[in-house]
């Protein structure tokens, strides 16, 4: 209690407010973009080393701009729970295999033990625990995916859907006024090296 700053907390807190657990596995960190205020809990895996190996511009000269090698970009106020796994999706493109970037918007919650290989996830998305998001799935804004859902590869989930099942189906719609439930600002404050109690 006496020292203002404990020498080793469970999390590394960056200047932009990201809270990354020391026990999280981040591979290829130079290719992972965190938007700020993002929480990465212990034992989460993020595969930044699986970068895109074929660039659409590379055929026409390709020396115009430095190539953007971001494998995974994550927006603000995202929350990656324990044991989740984020990896870029991969496929055959013009006869050669390549990984494609995985993009996530703001306020995305990923539940414990979920495996995400989507192409893009919009903002204000809640993915329940134990879910599997197949390769190249596209999830739009304000989507709630219930626990244990298996989203098949290439599925496109429209905005304001509630999705569940194996394989995933749209089972309902986010009700009017149910949008505040997606806000993760309060959740962000409850974790870290000096967590605050959740407000009521």
């Amino acid at each position: 209690m006496s020292s203002r700053r404990p020498p080793r907390g469970e999390y590394i807190e960056t200047d932009t407010g990201n809270k990354v657990a020391r026990k999280a596995t981040l591979v290829g960190t130079q290719n992972i973009m965190l938007g700020g205020k993002t929480v990465i809990q212990p034992d989460a895996i993020i595969r930044g080393d699986l970068v895109r190996t074929i660039h659409p511009s590379s055929q026409s000269g390709g020396n115009a701009a430095p190539q953007n090698n971001t494998a995974i970009s994550i927006g603000r106020y995202c929350f990656l729970s324990r044991n989740c796994c984020l990896r870029p999706p991969g496929r055959l493109y013009k006869g050669a295999f390549t990984y494609m970037p995985l993009r996530m918007g703001d306020h995305v919650f990923i539940g414990a033990g979920s495996v995400v290989q989507a192409a893009s996830i919009g903002s204000h998305v809640h993915i329940g625990a134990g879910s599997v998001i197949g390769e190249f799935a596209i999830i739009k804004d304000y989507v709630r995916i219930l626990d244990g859902t298996v989203v098949p590869p290439n599925m496109v989930i429209p905005s304001f859907s509630i999705v569940a099942g194996q394989p995933a189906r749209v089972i309902g719609e986010v009700p009017e006024g149910g949008h505040e439930a997606f806000e993760l600002r309060d959740l962000y404050k409850t974790v870290g090296n000096n967590p605050q109690p959740a407000p009521h």
Binding site: T53, L92, A96, F97, Y99
Partner: peptide, 14 residues
């Protein structure tokens, strides 16, 4: 064949 291509890429990345 697809898997062989994937392995080629992974060998470079990992």
């Amino acid at each position: 064949k697809g898997l062989a291509r994937q392995i080629e890429v992974l060998r470079r990345l990992i």
